[in-house]
Design a protein around this nucleic acid. Structure first.
Lengths: 224, 224
DNA sequence: GGGATTTTCCGAAAAATTGCCCAAGGAAGG
DNA sequence: CCTTCCTTGGGCAATTTTTCGGAAAATCCC
């Protein structure tokens, strides 16, 4: 789970930003001063810092410099001033983005995600090959013997997941959790149905599966 | 010995870049304005120019144009904006590469070397050709079978980006991030609409796209 | 082996999501 | 001021996802 450190001396901003980021699924830590922020930073090692420039005593710029000394953690500056000089100074100190108050919370969240996406690098998206089956997440295509399967989004996600875990059995619950997502309130029957679609796609005889096997009482597994 | 001209109005950037390039064995000259840069350029005839787009008074674009009038000296643009439109504009003006702040000094040095190495060869500002489609960022024109498509700026930027990444799927989010730029905070719907314009331009039957495909639930991709 | 029980599979239809088209408002640039 | 281009939103259509009841299959227990 991604950890965010939010540093701002205005309680209202702190609260609203924290609430929003929580809702977006981040783990948040807050500080209302540079000192406290620095302490927290060292302790929790956040994945990204949202930092107000105007802090009492030490400014955000100082804070940024201090962080940059021994870390590449992405930093987003927040400022009440739309000053281009500040902006440049921030970027030059190694900030990754610069947002001017009053900002849109959705926008801020979008930028946080964009930067994390960039800095953590794209999630590993490599081609899966298993027997005569090939799955390419980059082009979002799948083939059997160069014959393109036309998978629906969910079918593709399921196939890709199974392809990355050949031979392993997964319960419906686990599949819902890992393919559908944690928040999915969906009956386990749904998994059955999708397995059926997938069998129709990749099994020569869907009635007698040879690769997408049912492990009765447990779940399903994909054997290469 | 290779001579580099660095033009930027931010003293700190000027210093850090200069220090790095010296360490890499280049002879450096710096200017903090377009005028000064132009003067130096004529006098020292550098082998490559590193140029900030945002300069006071005359913009880097103007500078670039002026240089290109009577020289092929490679130019690397540096900008705080990751806007694809800027990128296209830069390449079209004859820039050889385009680096977004905050940049990694090592990366910048690597690019400088790469460009100098092939300064006799072909530059980065490549013409894209894919099937019967051709996109030329320098003239800002695109054709299908020598029939000129009249692309709007955004259409062109989008087409150019997709053309450089044939076969890859991009989410609306990613497209907004990489084509519109990190300043952009706009709805994903906008991407749809531009895709439609583009389809009208490049697809024989825009209702049944064959090259600019929708990947439902994921995004879009351009297949050569 | 036979019957009961559990689990999975099938067919179809409802529900939800997503993308496309159309049109209008606004911004930018000449 | 006019034109072009960008952005947004509503309504509609198509696809996809999910649900459900009953049939089939596997397992268990005797």
């Amino acid at each position: 789970m991604m950890k965010l450190l939010i540093v701002d001396d205005e309680p209202v901003i702190l609260e609203t930003v924290e609430a929003k980021m929580r809702k977006e699924g981040f783990t948040t830590f807050v500080a209302d001063s540079a000192e406290e922020g620095m302490r927290l930073f060292r302790r929790i090692k956040p994945d990204l810092v949202i930092l107000d420039i105007m802090l009492p005593q030490r400014s955000g710029f100082d804070f940024c410099r201090a962080i940059r000394k021994d870390s590449n953690t992405p930093i987003i500056f927040v400022s009440a001033r739309a000053d281009e000089a500040d902006r440049v100074k921030g970027l030059e100190l190694g900030a990754d983005d610069y947002v001017v108050k009053p900002f849109n919370l959705g926008e801020l969240a979008a930028r946080v995600k964009a930067i994390l996406r960039r800095s953590t690098g794209e999630p590993v998206r490599e081609v899966i090959e298993s027997g005569n089956l090939r799955v390419d997440p980059r082009s979002h295509e799948a083939w059997i013997d160069d014959r393109p399967l036309n998978l629906s989004p969910k079918e593709f996600a399921l196939m890709y997941f199974l392809g990355r875990n050949v031979g392993q059995v997964f319960s419906r619950e686990t599949l819902l959790d890992r393919v559908w997502g944690r928040e999915a309130f969906i009956s386990g029957r749904t998994v059955d149905v999708h397995m059926r679609w997938l069998r129709i796609r990749i099994e020569p005889d869907p009635t007698n599966p040879t690769r997408l096997l049912t492990i009765r009482g447990v779940g399903y597994k994909f054997t290469g």
